[in-house]
Amino acid sequence: MDYIVDIKDIVTKFGATVVHDKISLHVKSGEIYAIVGPSGCGKSTLLRELVALHKPVSGSINILGYNLLDASYKQIQELRKKWGFLFQNGALFSSLSVYDNIALPLIEYTDLSSKFISKMVVYKLDLVGLKESDGSLFPSEISGGMVKKVALARALALEPRLLFLDEPTSGLDPISAREFDRLLLRLREFLSLSVVMVSHDLHSIRLTADRLAVIDDKHIVAQGSLDDIVNTHTPFINAFFDAYNTNPS
C-alpha cells in the first residue's frame, strides 16, 4: 500500500444537491497534501468524509490500509486512534483545562501512569510552542492562536501518522500563520507525519504543501504540485493564484 489516503469516485449529495461528482485523489505517505477550492465547494465535507463523520453516497475511501466505507465500528474506532483532526475553531472541550484536553485521549486509550502521561502532555505542549504553565488554563482563557496550538497538540496526543487540518491558519495573524506553517513542517519531519489539509491560505500552501488538489464545481479540476496547478487554467485557479503569479515574494 503506497498511499496513506486513497479516494476513488466519491459522490456526495445533500438532498438533491450534488456536492462531489466522482472525486478521486490519493495522498502519499509523508506528504503534506492541500485541498483548495471556492467556498461551498465541499472541501470541508470531503475532510469530514475522510474521518467518518459523514458518509458519501458512493465511492471508496481507503485510509491507512482500511476500507473506510465497509469498515466495522470496531475498525473505525481503531482508525480513530491512528489519525488526528484539527478542527477549524479548535473544538477544545471547554470544561477541561488545556492540560486535560491533551491528556484525555492518553488517559482513555492507554494504560500509562499519570506521571508518564504528564511528561507526554508537557512534551506535546512544548512541541507546539506552549509553556507548561499554559496547561492549567481553560479554553475560554486563551487566544485564538493558542487554541489552534492546543488543538494541534491534542490531535497529536496519540502519536498519529496521519493528520487532518481544517483551515489551520484561518483566523490567525500572518505572523502566527507562518509560525504554524513552520511548526507543521517541523512536526512532519520529526514525527514522520502525513498531512491532509483544507486551506484558503495561499502563503501557507506554498510554504507547506507538497501537492494539492483544486475542487471546483463538483470535480477535481487540477491535481499535482503547485507549479502544475498554476499552469492549469480555469477561472477559479486563475483568480486564486493571481497573487502568486504577480507577486511571488
Partner: peptide, 21 residues
C-alpha cells in the same frame, strides 16, 4: 537523533511538580 532531540527538550521541562496547584 530523535533521542538526542527529546533529551534536549525534556531537560528544560520540569515535570516533577504536578501541573495542578
Amino acid at each position: 537523533k530523535n533521542l538526542a532531540l527529546i533529551h534536549a527538550k525534556m531537560k528544560n521541562i520540569n515535570t516533577c511538580e504536578s501541573v495542578a496547584d
